[in-house]
Amino acid sequence: MEVRTIKVFTTVDNINLHTQVVDMSMTYGQQFGPTYLDGADVTKIKPHNSHEGKTFYVLPNDDTLRVEAFEYYHTTDPSFLGRYMSALNHTKKWKYPQVNGLTSIKWADNNCYLATALLTLQQIELKFNPPALQDAYYRARAGEAANFCALILAYCNKTVGELGDVRETMSYLFQHANLDSCKRVLNVVCKTCGQQQTTLKGVEAVMYMGTLSYEQFKKGVQIPCTCGKQATKYLVQQESPFVMMSAPPAQYELKHGTFTCASEYTGNYQCGHYKHITSKETLYCIDGALLTKSSEYKGPITDVFYKENSYTTTIK
């Protein structure tokens, strides 16, 4: 009895394709271990004539594949690729409408935090270190965002349907971005203890939790000093293409032309909904596939993004 075979390709990165001759009487799992086709788990399936010449994702289970996976995804987590594939199996079914010149995501599976993050990423200057993220990001900007969303979920250790947080998501993504040249110098002034300067680099240099107003941050924000008295913390120097200011959701007025974009969060910790506000020729609110415009805006804002380049204080 002759062994019926077909020729397929296996890959971990969709760049390096490895030619395989597979036995049609055995499952993919018996031949390769966990195997995925377009995100779908085909591990328990036997090869079919229609699979001839198709590319299958496999887990990096030998040295060659491990090197290829690390170079593309910059992670050695053995569960990463499987999590990416199972997320992709959902995100490829989502709709990605162009809204006001940006790629958004039609609401499904509690994905409003991903839509808000995706919209924000198209408006701030950011370059990702893992080629996987950078490639998928370019495709997302062009309207094909399924891979990018699935990668975000995998890097953030999230599953489809789980509630997510924009600030946490951005923080994970910033860790995989090139923020080497970003720098922030802060000064804390206390009447009792004097003053202390701190220099922050990388992710810490672009994120701040405690106030939404970048102007206020430049002037000074009140913080408790270690001595128990009130101290003032203010920005001395900022070198970065953008800054992200966050605070627990509270009524906040966004003035046209003073910011790049913002995240609105309605609801409580267990259950809520994100919308995205962007400042173009007027203010726009993007909620999944829905767009509304207004000249002014007041609502429960939790993150505001500002364009920056270089700032030095005039406070002496």
Rank of each mutant, 00 (worst) to 15 (best):
T266E: 11
Q20S: 13
H176N: 05
H273K: 01
Y297A: 02
Q122H: 05
K7G: 14
M24F: 09
G161I: 03
Q230M: 15
V3T: 14
M170Q: 01
I315C: 13
K92A: 10
A231D: 01
L102G: 10
T226E: 13
A145H: 03
T27R: 11
K201C: 09
G161H: 04
H276M: 08
F80D: 03
Q31E: 08
E281P: 02
N309C: 14
I152Q: 02
I105L: 09
L59Q: 10
G299C: 00
D13Y: 03
Q30T: 12
H176W: 14
S279V: 00
M170K: 02
C182P: 00
L212V: 11
T159E: 15
G33I: 05
P47N: 02
Y57D: 07
V206I: 09
L283H: 00
A150V: 05
M24H: 13
V206R: 02
K44S: 13
I45E: 14
Y155A: 05
V22Y: 03
G272Y: 05
T103N: 00
D287T: 00
L81M: 13
K54Q: 14
Y28N: 01
A231G: 01
L119D: 02
M1L: 15
T312C: 11
I15Q: 14
P249A: 00
G161E: 00
Y73M: 06
G299A: 08
H90C: 12
T314W: 15
G272C: 02
Y73H: 03
K298F: 15
Q20W: 11
N268A: 10
A250D: 13
A87M: 02
P300G: 00
E162F: 03
K233N: 01
N49D: 14
S246C: 02
G228H: 01
S240T: 02
E68N: 08
A146M: 07
G164I: 02
Q98F: 08
A142F: 10
D109E: 12
D109S: 04
Q197N: 08
Y113V: 02
Q237R: 12
V189E: 14
F174Y: 07
D287H: 00
R66E: 07
Q251D: 15
P249M: 00
G267E: 05
L254Q: 05
H256K: 11
T278H: 01
F305N: 01
F217C: 02
P241Y: 05
Y36E: 07
L151W: 02
P60A: 13
T199C: 13
T27C: 15
S246E: 06
E253W: 00
S279T: 03
Y84D: 06
S263I: 01
A108T: 15
N100S: 14
T103K: 04
K298T: 13
G33N: 02
P249F: 10
L133V: 03
P224V: 15
A142Y: 13
P241H: 06
Q251N: 15
T282N: 05
T75C: 12
G202Q: 01
T116L: 02
E144F: 06
F305P: 01
S171C: 14
H51W: 07
Q122K: 05
K275A: 09
C182L: 04
P248K: 11
D38L: 12
Y113C: 13
T27G: 08
L179D: 10
D135P: 07
E125D: 15
N16F: 05
N309P: 10
V22Q: 02
P300W: 12
K280G: 14
S181Y: 09
W107Y: 05
P241A: 09
Q30E: 13
T159W: 08
I223R: 03
P47A: 12
K158M: 02
T27I: 12
A146N: 04
S246G: 00
E253V: 12
A87Y: 03
I223C: 15
K158D: 06
T211G: 01
T116M: 04
Y57N: 08
A108F: 03
V42Q: 13
T120R: 09
E168R: 09
E144M: 10
I15A: 06
L212C: 08
K233E: 14
